[in-house]
Design a protein around this nucleic acid. Structure first.
Lengths: 266, 266
DNA sequence: CAGTGGTCTAGACCACACC
DNA sequence: GTGTGGTCTAGACCACTGT
């Protein structure tokens, strides 16, 4: 445990202090020079610690401005929606959300083991995400009953993460997701207004708080006509994003030449 | 262009020299101290340059051993196959490959624009990937006719990247991939020995050489029963891998608790 | 302009791999 | 052991942002 690596040690100390609320969400940390004096170390070492925390998504460093405790809006909604609209006006994708249902007192042993909790009850929020009025994603989110207020106080103009942060003061920094190709089940197809048989991505996802606790479980259907995945690799790194294609018609092979699309990957 | 950032400048110089073959594939570069003397700079700066090149996948740094020009086998085959076998013996997944067909003199304007070449002809290699004798992936790879030797000299015990490196002396360091959920087409289903209707990932992928040229185009079908995707996010970073599930039976929700599975993601 | 983060030095010393 | 990469110092100076 005792690594004796100074920068990791400092990172750990800072992390602890942030978790204890010493530096509230969105607030600026002391400057790198100040931190260096505080910890009696050099700037290079301090920067190593901060780089570590930034990679963990806990802080956000802006050149010439400062270092800030990461606000949830920094991480775009986990289903980081990105538009795809023939070459132009990719910027403004009006994503609207509709709440279909709210359920409480759900019991499911698999959810229990997922959340690692004995709290046998869960609440669920079912939503529909639309682009320009066209529904493209059907999503169901589960939280532990004790956090049902997160769902109650959720409003459609912000993400569930923001609601979570505001209600509980906890931020989500990690997630794991599993994707499979499926046929759209009737329930989802109906909600999406799709009548014919349709292939889709089924995404199951857990969101993990800064305290390393599972706080959210999501299941989302992303129908093939509207959603594709784009992935980029360089060296050992790979990264991906979902792309919304409202028209339902892109031949993916052409999109390799669309430089805008790949801009922010890797 | 002239950034005046010393470490990027050094990285650029080293990259050029590597491309010119001054340091052949797999060979060790001079040590960090030597490089620092050569470029008349400090170790910290040299390390910055090397870190840059490592992230680009051009070199491979090993603590206590040395810095090496990256050999293609460092990047596992782009469809980085990872096994999933109830908790144990995940290590040894005997992936075998069968060549189904080799075609030449293929003309396709879309491939031309993809490769950005006027060479109107392409060669194709169709393969079947199997785990323990169970076929799980159907894959078709295209190269420009001028590189048809890569396909001719391909052998089933190594990757196409290795064949490419050996035949042309060029290494692949980047790739872009697009994934969609589809129904397995008859041709692929037949090859995979799947009789019923079956959902699958369709992966279209281009591989880009160190000279920034598209050298390979792949289409692969990864049927849902055998293949799932696992993705992990931390902060702004996200990464994913394909997981082979030979038995065709995992409920993905349980796999969140399988720590081995997520070990190497992020 | 002042204040922030980013780069760079010229060394020293530590951790790891290999013989 | 020797030789490699990894961390760290105590500053200096550069680049960016906002007033």
């Amino acid at each position: 445990m005792a690594k004796k690596l100074r920068y990791l040690e400092i990172a750990q100390i800072l992390k602890t202090r942030i978790l204890q609320g010493e530096f509230p969400l969105g607030q600026a940390l002391p400057s790198q020079k100040e931190l260096s004096e505080i910890f009696n170390t050099s700037v290079m070492t301090t920067r190593g610690a901060l780089a570590e925390l930034e990679q963990e998504g806990i802080i956000h460093i802006i050149h010439g401005v400062g270092t800030f405790v990461a606000a949830p809006e920094v991480h775009s909604d986990t289903l980081s929606l990105q538009g795809f609209q023939n070459e132009m006006d990719r910027q403004k994708m009006p994503v609207t959300t509709t709440v279909l249902s709210v359920e409480h007192h759900i019991s499911d042993p698999r959810l229990c083991s997922l959340f690692g909790s004995s709290d046998a009850q869960f609440s669920a929020l079912t939503r529909l995400r639309s682009i320009d009025g066209t529904p493209v994603i059907y999503q169901k989110s589960y939280v532990e009953q004790q956090f049902s207020a997160v769902i109650e106080q959720y409003s459609e103009d912000r993400s569930l993460y923001q609601s979570f942060a505001q209600t509980t003061g906890t931020m989500v920094t990690k997630g794991k997701e599993i994707m499979t190709p499926v046929l759209l089940p009737e329930e989802a197809a109906q909600a999406l207004g799709i009548t014919e048989a349709c292939t889709a991505f089924l995404s199951k996802r857990i969101s993990i708080s800064i305290h390393d606790k599972v706080v959210l479980y999501d299941e989302a259907y992303l129908p093939g006509p509207y959603v594709i995945m784009a992935s980029s690799r360089q060296g050992k790194r790979n990264t991906f994003k979902y792309i919304i294609n409202k028209e339902g018609t892109i031949d993916s092979i052409d999109s390799f030449n669309d430089t805008d699309l790949w801009e922010d990957l890797i």
